[in-house]
Write a protein that binds this DNA or RNA. Structure first.
Lengths: 175, 175
DNA sequence: ATCCCTGCAAAGGGTTTGCAGACGC
DNA sequence: GCGTCTGCAAACCCTTTGCAGGGAT
């Protein structure tokens, strides 16, 4: 999922953003490009707050309001995507130069893995036609336990059997 | 999606909940069964707040804390499912007696339509195996414009062309 | 010069938490 | 009677909003 030359990708993203702002008669402020730059220098998914903090760390003065405002603009011109992985906390990821994909999330360690499957596209177009919807986008998340967390669970289970002390309390904890 | 005899379904749901509480050594309080009853008497999706309000309307004294607590329990024993359709607002639906399905949401009127597609199951098991995840559940939401909102959009567009007054302002509103 | 965009801080809305009293077991 | 659940209200967290000043066009 990593592009060969990140620098060029950032430049291209800036061009797209610039064209978008022009088309919509919005202003090209330093803050907006600073945020785009920070996002495209990152890897993986991020939250609004960590983006904000990392920009502060670099001694740029910027406000949360501007971060949220700019994220909204970047979503509009398809330079980033917004996700909600179950909790009430939005996560974002850059999307220019990355192909369409979906996510598997580990319910224990919260790790996010990406995957592609062409059948999603088929379902999308078939269901759109069937139900007379003009589908614009979708979100498919699978939740489960990743390999290493499966092992951890097995070990914890084995230990529980070894020491059946305080039986009632242990039972309750497996809610 | 409507069951032939709702009453029986509610009874069955209560039995499942009762057995679950027993197994986990949790208490069978009136509040918990009251909430379950209210949920299974409803149709479609609902939010925690409207559930809470509707119970208050029936002159039962209950607190939000208990509603949220009980919703959590009902999720654990698979009697309801929790969804996040994009916003920071959880929606729930009863799940006992209803077959697995996914959702299409209209981005204009927020209408939610359900659909089934067996290919999801295939993708689930294939990706689980491929990435070594024990998949427990998933969430697939498609977003788009429903039939009637498509018409509304077309009409609005036609009107816009008829009266090209205040051109610049109209342009900006299409963000 | 205009007026959109920014930073700041406070408000907002859904959800969670802490505590004292109530009640299922 | 013990210990969990409840109701209440405050706290919490992420996000949005209002406002006055500043900068892009």
């Amino acid at each position: 999922m990593i592009s060969p030359d990140k620098k060029e990708q950032i430049e291209e993203a800036k061009n797209i953003f610039s064209a978008y702002l022009e088309k919509k008669a919005l202003r090209k402020t330093n803050e907006r490009f600073l945020i785009l730059d920070e996002i495209y220098s990152r890897t993986d998914h991020f939250e609004a707050e960590s983006l904000y903090n990392d920009i502060l760390k670099k001694n740029f003065n910027i406000s949360r309001a501007t971060v949220y405002n700019t994220l909204e603009l970047l979503i509009s011109c398809d330079l980033i995507k917004k996700h909600q992985f179950g909790k009430n906390l939005a996560q974002y990821e850059k999307s220019y130069g990355y192909k369409q994909h979906d996510h598997i999330i580990c319910v224990d360690c919260k790790k996010v893995v990406e995957f592609c499957d062409p059948r999603i596209q088929q379902i999308k177009s078939m269901m759109g036609e069937l139900l007379n919807f003009k589908i614009t986008h979708h979100s498919l998340n699978m939740y489960g336990v990743c390999g290493s967390c499966q092992k951890k669970r097995e070990m914890a289970e084995a230990q529980r059997k070894e020491e059946p002390i305080n039986k009632k309390k242990t039972e309750k904890q497996t809610i």
